[in-house]
Design a protein around this nucleic acid. Structure first.
Lengths: 157, 157
DNA sequence: CTTAGTACGACCATATTGATCGGAGATCAT
DNA sequence: ATGATCTCCGATCAATATGGTCGTACTAAG
């Protein structure tokens, strides 16, 4: 059903939370630890920890060790796109198996496959969609998302 | 990774094939049986059969029993959208679990969930994308996707 | 040097999906 | 009518992905 995984969900929630604390009015610049997020959103602590580790390794957030430690956004919320977040957790967007096939690495039906090209177009459109929306947009502040999907420029129907 | 299932893949291939036979130059109007499609695209016969049965039950194709039997599109290729095909097989498009929650049927983190609204916007955009492309578009060699700039206007929190 | 936190890797349980098997019911040709 | 060919339908199995857990090591602040 084209679902995104729970881990990715958790990643989005966590990043939204971190961003809102970091740029919020109350305690701006404060680091946020795993436990705080887990409790706020009822996310299993250990699982969330792993998600945050991945995000950290991917360079979306910075980790600070030790007591009083926690996580911080690595860049501005406007510079983190939804696509980046989801791909950090789930790997490259691939609507269909043959999306990133190298030469000589075909699926069984590739030979006469008639749907690869259109599917890749669709995939590209979805990617544009996700990549044109940032964490900043998600937070309400000033929602400026502009989607001009390139794949969409086709003829009208 | 936002992947669509193999069954849905098969459904798309099969429908594309049926459509191209039905409206092709060679033997227009001919019915197509399961075996022919399975062999052409290297799809496991039994699995494809089940997929076609579902498509038939969903009213996308008509089945004709007995020898010389097979399948026909139930309507014109331009009236069958990619969204309809995929949803026939995979059920309603749901990018996230809470997409179609009824009242009182919350996910654990719904209470403080901060990402539901933006995700629903994204989902809607993807749906538009899939619903604006038809089987007919897929065949014409020039797939014309039309997105009407969707999602993220005014994500309020 | 103790404590509170992250980092990391191995691990299990369950759900989903892909795929298979067996038979029942139609339909057409002969 | 009868058999061959086809769809129809339900049950089942295997593989994979996913969600979730555990234990331990490492780091930094007090």
């Amino acid at each position: 059903m084209l679902k995104i995984s729970k881990k990715a969900d958790y990643a989005l929630m966590a990043l939204q939370h971190i961003a809102s604390v970091q740029f919020g009015d109350v305690t701006p610049g404060r680091v946020v630890n795993t436990k705080e997020i887990a409790e706020e959103y009822n996310i299993p602590l250990e699982l969330l920890a792993k998600v945050l580790q991945v995000l950290s390794k991917q360079g979306l957030i910075e980790s600070h060790n030790g007591p009083k430690g926690g996580y911080l956004l690595a860049r501005s919320a406007r510079q983190i796109t939804i696509a980046q977040i989801i791909e950090s957790i789930e790997g490259p967007l691939a609507i269909t198996d043959c999306s990133h096939e190298k030469d000589g690495d075909f699926c069984m039906q590739r030979e006469h496959c008639n749907i690869r090209t259109p599917l890749l177009k669709i995939q590209d459109s979805i990617y544009q969609l996700l990549n044109n929306m940032t964490l900043g947009d998600m937070m309400g502040g000033t929602p400026l998302i502009t989607i001009q999907s390139p794949a969409a420029q086709g003829v009208e129907r």
